[in-house]
Design a protein around this nucleic acid. Structure first.
Length: 581
RNA sequence: GCGGCCAUGGUCUAGUGGUAGGACUUCAGCCUUCCAAGCUGAUAGCUCGGGUUCGAAUCCCGAUGGCCGCACCA
């Protein structure tokens, strides 16, 4: 059994994670987070929100998972989220049609339509590269799940393949809420859907998954973060595209150095790489199993200016992308603006409003209108242009309109001068996007927390999750099945729950068995109520033991100090020894 | 989507054309009283759908799921 299998087996058994729809045989690419897993996921998302919503001050939104066709026409997913495929009618293998054409013809097949690909395949008489058999027609395989809204034929709609689009389409309102000042950012946590061709890698490749995305709207001329100096000394394992092409490994470098040497394009991007790193490190991913890899030029989406993936080294799958950080430029807003006709720009205020004098004409339309009829409007337009250029002086003017010459008499118009104040210039913001695959992150967390050791010739499995993120932060166990111990235990549990802790009370089986159970669900601290606790004659009356998951050490504390001790241990990361003093 | 291998209680597994077994877990009781101890008992299983057969968990076909290889991964 490899590590992945061991982690999945424990996850199934202990309620972290299991295949969905099991009673009906399951379905590839769908997993349930069970009672422990769902808590863990929520705790991880709370941490994520702490970083982005609380500390970075970004606004969180929540938008539908189903969106009408037009959204994806604009985003490019309808067209671009497809792969042109052909199947071999001999051996049944499937191939990317464009790759096939690329390999045989000196063309950039990316830009070809399916019809053009078909023509090339027919013209070159291409067959199956494996068996030489005949090929099917070129067809599109779109990775979006389609549906309809409303009865009958309804309206064509799709499940979102990323949460980002919901933010982009709401941009005009979000910009207002940000009081029309850049930079600002919106985040969203939610499900996204991709009809993967082959979701083979268990929980690493899901058809429905949890995404947490950040969209930072910035002035393309101001891709800076004023907090960068605070974090610029931090070192990350960076693997630039240049290094990859040279066959080199990632190198631990400071963000400052990477920016100075041009591997990272700006301090905004670098700063957010650091936020990603803080998050993944807080999940307990060791530095050595974490690297930041820049996309190679041909790997990057065509609209992205730059893209780095945070990758975690997993036992079975190797380096797996968990977070993508992309500079999407103005692609998304420009596309949605173009398709919707809505203004998706922002204003860059000038230090001082620029004033300029504009000359235009005021025309007596009651005279000009009846006289020139349909030529009147174009004539006025031309007249205004010429007035602005200072070419009219108030006398009669001849204007060319569609080949004929019309005259505007001096008494029919007047040149006026107006002062126009320009407060700023408009532009389409750029988007910097950190995008998290939360399920992958949580799996990585479980794998890195999983530990197995021999204790007295028996295997002890421990899930050493970060204390504050564990699904059950503390358990209360009566040492034996004694009425008084039980009573005190439930009292302790009640008080801990009153402090906001999820508490498990377990009274079944001997104490060792129960400790092992808590070890496997990752409970960092166990409170044990024993004989001494309930014995008024004993010196330790009204004290309990605290037992640490990671060291298996125990200390005694008074019943009255339990809540404070648990808080210090779980939330502040205090040592057990110092709590026991 | 293709090919190969596979599918037995919660978990890990044995098994065979004729009553499905073990280990661990879980639950109850006894015992024990700080790290999966012991004893007794209990719950719980042949992925699903067809076919062959007197009889199918076993053989055949299909579906679903898993693993490996190919392909795919905006």
């Amino acid at each position: 059994m490899d590590l992945y299998e061991r982690v999945i087996e424990l996850s199934r058994r202990r309620g972290f994670l299991h295949p969905s729809f099991e009673i009906y045989g399951g379905l590839g690419g769908f997993y349930d987070w069970g009672p422990r897993g769902a808590r863990l996921l929520e705790n991880v998302l709370d941490l994520w929100r702490q970083l982005y919503v609380v500390e970075e001050g970004l606004m969180e939104v929540s938008t539908p998972t189903i969106m009408p066709r037009r959204v994806f026409e604009a985003s490019g997913h309808l067209e671009g989220f497809v792969d042109p495929m052909v199947d071999c009618e001999g051996c049944g293998r499937s191939f990317r049609a464009d790759h096939l054409v690329d390999n045989h013809v000196d063309l950039v097949a990316d830009s070809l339509s399916n019809e053009e690909l078909q023509e090339v395949i027919d013209g070159e008489e291409l067959g199956c590269p494996e068996c030489g058999g005949p090929l099917s027609e070129v067809y599109d395989f779109n990775l979006m799940f389609g549906t309809t809204v409303g009865p009958g034929r309804g309206q064509e709609a799709y499940m979102r393949p990323e949460t980002a689009q919901g933010i982009f389409v709401a941009y005009p309102r979000l910009y207002r809420y940000a009081r029309e000042r850049l930079p600002f950012g919106a985040v969203q946590v939610g499900r996204a859907y991709r009809n993967e061709v082959s979701p083979r890698q268990g929980v690493i490749r899901l058809r429905e998954f949890t995404q947490a995305e950040v969209e930072l709207f910035v002035d393309p001329e101001e891709k800076v973060h004023d907090g960068f100096d605070r974090v610029s000394h931090r070192k990350l394992n960076l693997l630039s595209s240049g290094k990859q092409l040279d066959g080199e490994a990632a190198e631990r470098r400071s963000l400052r150095e990477a920016v100075d040497e041009g591997d990272l394009q700006n301090t905004l991007f670098a700063y957010h790489l650091h936020v990603v790193d803080r998050f993944l490190t807080a999940l307990g991913i060791p530095e050595g199993d974490l690297r930041y890899r820049q996309h190679l030029p041909d790997e990057r989406a065509h609209y992205a200016a730059d893209c780095w993936d945070a990758e975690v080294n997993l036992d079975r799958f190797g380096w797996v992308e968990v977070v993508g950080l992309a500079d999407r430029t103005d692609y998304d807003l420009s596309r949605h603006s173009g398709h919707s006709g809505r203004d998706m720009s922002a204003l860059r205020p000038l230090d001082e409003a620029r004033e300029s004098t504009v000359r235009r004409v005021e025309v007596d339309m009651s005279s000009l209108g009846p006289r020139l009829r349909e030529d009147a409007s174009p004539v006025v337009e031309r007249l205004n242009e010429r007035a602005a250029a200072g070419e009219v002086d108030g006398g009669d003017v001849s204007v060319e309109v569609e080949g004929s010459t019309r005259v505007v008499r001096g008494e029919e118009y007047e040149v006026v001068e107006e002062v126009e104040r320009v407060r700023g210039e408009t532009f389409t913001p750029h988007v910097i996007e950190p995008s998290y695959g939360v399920d992958r992150a949580v799996y990585a967390m479980l794998e890195k927390a999983f530990r197995s050791e021999e204790v007295e010739e028996r295997e002890r499995r421990v899930v050493s999750l970060p204390r504050a993120l564990a699904p059950v932060p503390v358990a209360v166990l009566p040492l034996t099945d004694d009425a008084e111990m039980r009573h005190v235990s439930s009292e302790v549990a009640r008080r801990l729950r009153g402090n906001g802790f999820v508490v498990e009370v377990d009274t079944s089986g001997n104490i060792g068995r129960r400790y092992r159970r808590q070890d496997e669900i990752g409970t960092p601290l166990v409170v044990t109520v024993d004989q001494v606790t309930v014995d008024p004659e004993s010196e330790g009356h009204r004290t309990v033991t605290l037992r640490s998951r990671d060291s298996m050490e125990q200390v005694r504390v008074g019943l009255e100090e339990v809540e404070a001790s648990v808080l210090r241990f779980v939330q502040d990361g205090a040592d057990l020894a110092e709590i026991g003093e």
